[in-house]
Design a protein around this nucleic acid. Sequence first.
DNA 1: GCCAACGTTGGC
DNA 2: GCCAACGTTGGC
Length: 157
Amino acid sequence: MRRYWLMKSEPGCFSYQDLLDSPDQTTCWDGVRNYQARNLMRDQIKIGDGVLFYHSNIKEPAIVGTAVVVKEGYPDHTALDPRNDHFDPKASEANPIWFMVDVKAVSPLEHEITRGFLKEHPRLCSMDVLKKGNRLSVQEVSPGHWQEILTLAGLKE
DNA sequence: GCCAACGTTGGC
DNA sequence: GCCAACGTTGGC
């Protein structure tokens, strides 16, 4: 059963364009240091799952593109590198603690779907990403919400 | 830039 | 195990 996810990224850090510019339009979703998000990436997110790419922490946050999971949970090696910003001294080869998945770009949205728009939309205003205080950087999207967004964007499955 | 909400840390 | 203090996220 295919599932759907929303992944947040600050475009100043890693944007959808950066994903398009990546080799094979694919990147590892490294640097996530939150246990709830870690558990999703380690246990729940599977190859072929759909991803909404969300730009956060900017003037107009928005869903800007879609992606697909191409590699399932594996250790986030950046936690082992002391020179990396996301280094975690508690992580080791034997106990990596942190996990990541690989995602590949599918399609940029011709018109990004802003947070303001989502909040006004009768069927999308219930999305988790809109809930106050929600800072989870990887979260599930219901099939209904996924379908609605793809339809709005003029994209086919 | 502000600040509310949240997750983590560490003293007790 | 509690909880205050702290750091971070992220909308506004």
